[in-house]
Design a protein around this nucleic acid. Structure first.
Length: 481
DNA sequence: TTTTGAGTTGTTCGA
DNA sequence: GTCGAACAACTCAAA
């Protein structure tokens, strides 16, 4: 009887899991998750993501327990842990889903080398992307660097139907397993750590079941309004699937398949459903770009940006991080991020444009902050999106596209609902001034119980001046290219 | 090889 | 108040 170690990584699900299916078909299965803090180097899981990981593992643990199995948790160096687990369990194979982070391929090679001479079969399986990097190419065989043609070409390829959950003969040997709580992935108020994740339990339902609920709820009705609604941060017209997808609680092809079915049952919603799928397409696009350019998280994709005159104003960066820039839509977004581990997509663009263009702070600072604060922080999407906003990425936003935080607020949060939710000190301000409180007459401020500079900051930079400054800075790039 | 058309999400200015 | 043009030129992808 064969025994296979299934190494769970960012694929914390039991359905549509090719590695698990293959393992189940050959005999007993030992499900393992290894918490390796060194593996990703600078890009170890951020705080918010650690919270989610804890919850997601708890969920996977209980799903496996319900099927009379036991998820083995171990902490430490992946190779050493695998070596001892293989010995303890007598496994003759190790299966896992392929991952695409820059540090994943080297690790997979190490695993191969480690077990090569021990007669342990190492196999990796797809399951994290719709299209493997390298499988969607231009006519001349190169990677696409523009999204639209990439997605058109990708859509000409078929996507297989998702697979079901296999019947698994779980290994019953008493292997030692860590207690999840000992990993201290979450703030521990008993140890005096402030509970920055207060209330997150009510906002999110990590785990495979929660992922499918989110998908079903979204496709049930909100998706109908997706095309325009996704731009309104006060409304719930986005899927909020990103953290589930990041941890692989749901696979992109499960999403793809459910969306295609929805197009059949609600053909009138085909357009917004395709719009939604294009966002899944962006995730694919980002991963194939990362595959093409491993340094994406730290280096500009466009060479000429290496000499960009970024400022390094720590006070500006700190005001941005704390949601104290004096621009309500920016501050609301940054506070939503702090309080929920999430930020609405439209607002992500606004705050990112503000940091990189108004404040001329290097995009990598924003990338790092998002990495720590976002539940859905994903190495490919995060890096590509920051570079897209900054202008240094593939298919990037042109340099002169500088979001006006006042106009964006007025356009997408016209009633000021979103701002009032996250910046309660502005809640009595009439909506005429909600996106530019400094324009309000003194009388209005008094009756709104608001003293600018005390209750809420004055703008840390003037929009018009900052915009011109950004255009100047980008002129340097023009000359360089 | 050369040519041609197109490219996620915007803003400002002036008619 | 609304609308179109300018912003600036480049790179990509396909014919």
């Amino acid at each position: 009887m064969s025994t296979t170690l299934v190494l769970f990584r960012q694929d914390l699900r039991l359905h549509d899991h090719p590695a698990l299916i293959a393992a189940a078909s050959r005999g007993r299965v030992v499900p393992v998750f290894i918490y390796d803090e060194e593996q990703a180097g600078d890009w170890h899981l951020g705080g918010a993501s650690q919270w989610w990981l804890h919850e997601s593992l708890k969920s996977l643990e209980s799903s496996i327990s319900a099927l009379s199995g036991r998820l083995i948790l171990r902490r430490g160096d992946t190779i050493s842990v695998l070596r001892s687990l293989q010995q303890e369990s007598g496994a003759d194979a190790i299966y896992f889903s392929r991952q695409y982070q820059p540090w994943s391929a080297p690790l997979e090679t190490l695993i191969n080398n480690e077990f090569h001479d021990l007669n342990v079969s190492i196999k990796r399986f797809p399951g994290t992307l719709l299209h493997e990097p390298g499988s969607v190419l231009t006519g001349s065989g190169t990677a696409f660097k523009v999204f639209t043609p990439f997605w058109r070409a990708a859509n000409k390829q078929s996507v297989a139907l998702p697979l079901g959950r296999p019947d698994v003969d779980w290994h019953s040997h008493p292997l030692a397993s860590d207690d999840l709580a000992d990993w201290q992935l979450q703030p521990d108020t008993q140890r005096g750590v402030p509970n920055w994740a207060e209330g997150w339990q009510d906002l999110w339902k990590p785990g495979e079941e929660g992922a499918h609920l989110a998908l079903t709820d979204f496709l049930e009705a909100p998706v109908a309004h997706y095309a325009e609604g996704r731009d309104v941060p006060a409304k719930r017209y986005t899927s909020r699937l990103s953290p589930h997808l990041k941890f692989g609680e749901i696979s992109p092809r499960q999403i793809w398949s459910a969306a295609q079915q929805r197009k059949l049952s609600a053909p009138q919603w085909s357009a917004p459903i395709d719009k939604f799928l294009a966002e899944v397409g962006w995730r694919e696009f980002c991963y194939q770009l990362l595959d093409l350019f491993n340094d994406m998280p730290a280096k500009p994709f466009k060479q000429q940006f290496a000499g960009f005159p970024w400022g390094n104003n720590r006070e500006h960066l700190s005001a941005w991080q704390r949601g104290q820039t004096g621009y309500p839509i920016v501050d609301a977004g940054m506070r939503e991020l702090q309080h929920t581990g999430f930020m609405h997509n439209r607002v992500r663009m606004i705050v990112a444009s503000f940091l990189t263009k108004h404040l001329l702070v290097h995009w990598i600072e924003g990338e790092r902050w998002f990495w720590d604060c976002l539940l859905d922080a994903d190495i490919a999407s995060n890096a590509c999106s920051w570079q897209w906003v900054a202008g240094s990425g593939a298919d990037a936003s042109p340099y002169f596209r500088i979001f006006n935080p006042i106009a964006q607020g007025q356009k997408f949060d016209s009633e000021g609902e979103y701002v009032k939710q996250w910046c309660p000190e502005l809640s009595k301000l009439p909506k005429k001034y909600i996106h530019e409180p400094w324009e309000a007459p003194q009388m209005t401020l008094v009756s709104a119980d608001l003293e600018l500079g005390t209750d809420y900051p004055l703008p840390i930079v003037d929009h018009k001046t900052a915009r011109l400054g950004a255009l100047d800075a980008y002129a340097v790039i023009k000359q360089a290219s």
